[in-house]
Write a protein that binds this DNA or RNA. Structure first.
Lengths: 234, 234
DNA sequence: CCATGGTAACTTGTTGCCAAGTTGGCCGCT
DNA sequence: AGCGGCCAACTTGGCAACAAGTTACCATGG
């Protein structure tokens, strides 16, 4: 195992244990090199790892500083419930922003999930979720026009799908079986979620069904920042 | 965004799309530097990222090669079922190895999970799970001696807890609510699971209850390699 | 003709030094 | 005494050159 990884882990351990306060300055590359008897490039690589992992920020001429790592949110992984509602109930400073609404081309997987035919029109609606002004999750819903005839006109204004369903007379929901995976963010996801390329994202693909009629209301893909959530499966 | 991240992503995209075969040699640092008009150190950093993420292996004097990335296993995240059984049913070349069995000191969280008193003795049993000879998951069970009086003597031989429960007359199980989180592996976890420090691990903490009596049979912590699994929540 | 050794041209790995940015202390001026 | 400018000593950022490893080709000897 490389020296820079060992040093990085030592520094991570110190940061996590509270040895340094948020925004406190860490030892310089030269100090680390001297302390661990390694060339400076090794110390630099250790700090680069810390930066990539999100523990520090660095500024030329100034030094390396502990980044503000926000506390984790416990999230109950149950479908059929409004994410917006969950966050508000937990008392977070929560905000949801609609970032796009557009029609998609036929896609067999999504159309099958929506249990709709090839001639239907399907809209992709994205909401970015913020807590304390920081983006923490990206929610994408696929909605069939045959179920929601006004979706083309209304989609761009939606920030909570469950509020929308309520307004259309749907009040009780079931969740489809979910597929869950973990991956590193794409360039666009990094931009939207404001994270480095090494923040794993938990992707949850699922669907929402109206309990009364059995109609598929949406198919969803949700991307949660793993560094901001831990999850409870009921 | 840095040039080396862009280049790394370009290379990842090419690897994932099948442009290069497994073990095929990739362009040298100098070739990348020439192609993208960057200094060689930038090309190197791109390759270092690929190596850390597990896409390539590198050898001085020879070059960089595409690493064999094994296909993902779909895993149904339901407790109360034997992991060993699931893997065997899927037809994988599966092996489970017991790697330790030892008594632990009193730990409030674990003892509370086991719903047992401070005077009980609790054993920590670890199994490492292999598919095709590669470690893919680490299972840790906490077992109370008051429920399994022979655990001290038998623990070191156990490779499947469910087989053990069956042999003790337990046949139907319920799962406790689970806590799920994602983190990067520690040094020991990397050693056990044979992965780099950037392979996210999905940690699933749960418990197993005997359906008939309601007794808590075990508390578990399971670490799955995220690069080897995608998960289905029923 | 075949086998062996040497070397040039490549590969990745390492290091020293220069570049760019920051800041505190000192000096000069008002 | 106070303020502003300059500079040395530090910080991180960047890069060319050297080091170490590999391999294919060529020359030489048996």
């Amino acid at each position: 195992m490389s020296a820079e990884t060992e040093i990085a882990e030592r520094l991570i351990s110190e940061i996590v244990s509270g040895r340094y306060n948020v925004h406190e300055r860490l030892p310089s590359e030269n100090e680390i090199a001297g302390k661990y008897k390694v060339p400076r490039i090794t110390a630099r690589k250790a700090y680069e790892k810390l930066e990539e992992l999100g523990y520090v920020y660095r500024q030329q001429g100034k030094g390396s500083y502990v980044k503000d790592r926000l506390t984790q949110i416990e999230l109950v992984l149950s479908g059929g419930v409004s994410f917006s509602q969950k966050m508000l109930e937990k008392g977070y400073d929560f905000e949801s922003r609609n970032i796009f609404s557009r029609e998609i081309k036929y896609n067999k997987r999504i159309y099958d999930c929506l249990e709709t035919g090839e001639k239907d029109r399907v809209f992709k609606i994205g909401r970015l979720r913020f807590i304390d002004g920081q983006p923490i999750a990206l929610h994408i819903s696929y909605i069939a026009k045959s179920v929601f005839p006004d979706i083309a006109a209304e989609g761009a204004n939606l920030t909570s799908m469950f509020s929308y369903y309520n307004s259309k007379g749907y009040h009780e929901f079931l969740s489809k079986p979910s597929l869950l995976s973990v991956s590193f963010p794409t360039k666009l996801q990094r931009k939207l979620l404001g994270c480095t390329y090494l923040v794993p994202l938990l992707a949850l693909q699922s669907g929402c069904i109206d309990k009364r009629t059995g109609a598929v209301l949406e198919c969803t893909k949700i991307l949660y920042r793993c560094d901001r959530f831990s999850y409870i499966m009921p």
